[in-house]
Design a protein around this nucleic acid. Sequence first.
DNA 1: TTGATTACTTACTTACAAGTAAGTAACTTC
DNA 2: GAAGTTACTTACTTGTAAGTAAGTAATCAA
Lengths: 186, 186
Amino acid sequence: MQDTKERIVSLADQLIKTRGYNAFSYKDISDPLEIKNAAIHYHFPTKTDLGIAVIDIEVERFILLSGKWATQPEDKQLKQLFETFNKKNKEGLVCLMGSLSPDYETFPSALQEKVTGMSSTFLNWTSECLEKGREKGLFHFDGDAYDRALLVMTNLLASLLLCRVMGNKVFSRITNQLLKDLNAGK
Amino acid sequence: MQDTKERIVSLADQLIKTRGYNAFSYKDISDPLEIKNAAIHYHFPTKTDLGIAVIDIEVERFILLSGKWATQPEDKQLKQLFETFNKKNKEGLVCLMGSLSPDYETFPSALQEKVTGMSSTFLNWTSECLEKGREKGLFHFDGDAYDRALLVMTNLLASLLLCRVMGNKVFSRITNQLLKDLNAGK
DNA sequence: TTGATTACTTACTTACAAGTAAGTAACTTC
DNA sequence: GAAGTTACTTACTTGTAAGTAAGTAATCAA
């Protein structure tokens, strides 16, 4: 019965993306699942263990998804990435990176390393996607692909944060302009 | 003696920018200032009141600073804005928006409104700066100035978050490329 | 069928966060 | 010089977070 364990991680994932890591407690998980907080400690002895599990699942899910896109042209792949952010926005969520990075300093090093690893995974993928797409003439941009990936990732990450504060039409404004920019001069 | 009150706000500001709003407590302020937690409650009855004071000071400071830049050409003004972010980065801080926006849903409405107001102030200033600079031929970009301001603000905000996680050379990579983009085609 | 393992619950503990009521010492105003 | 007012402290209360020790019921493995 991995059912409870999966539900715990899934709820923790949602809570982190809505309220933030330091603002949710085991009670926020045990109440809706109708279990005791000790049941969570059974599966995840510490909150850090739970945080790590949430990140592991997120990275796993991304690797699986991006693997499925791999046969498509790079401009389509990038749009798929944007679509995953769009989906989060529609659900009123921010991305894991956007939620965890401000709290980074409050994390034990094991959790910090996981966040850094996740960030690398996303940045490397985006960087490669942009570089290959540029080689094929699907994107047009100046400078290093990794620098461009940094710009794209920061736009996406913070767009979800700003949507919280300014309303969620912000997302389409940002992504539309960003996609136009990348194909500019075509 | 407004001295204590100012020190409380200043420390709260730093704590929010390093650990996040939900991760600091009155003890983190009362200990270093060698006062009792009740002294903080005297000046700021609730944590919300303290959070609001921190935002008010930040916005005030920005209006003062940007007023001083107003005589400079817009490309210099934008660089001044970048410089305020650079300074935060060097101190290991994120910006207030980057720290508060992920926790937005956990805030009482009075604090939420302050965050939204602060965000509007920054976005409107950036939008006007970009538009006027474009009219003068100092910037070159496509699309609506407000959309461009959204892109610039999300780059700046999230660059500080990513610096936490990926090391702080990320900042110069992002800002250098961003400034090149805005003058591209010159 | 016994002994181990799994997946919990019951019932705690420790620590700390936010906030409050009542008191006080110093200054200020009239 | 008496009556506020300011800026605190002392000493609490209430609530909740994270974590643990010991017990239990059900399934598994030999």
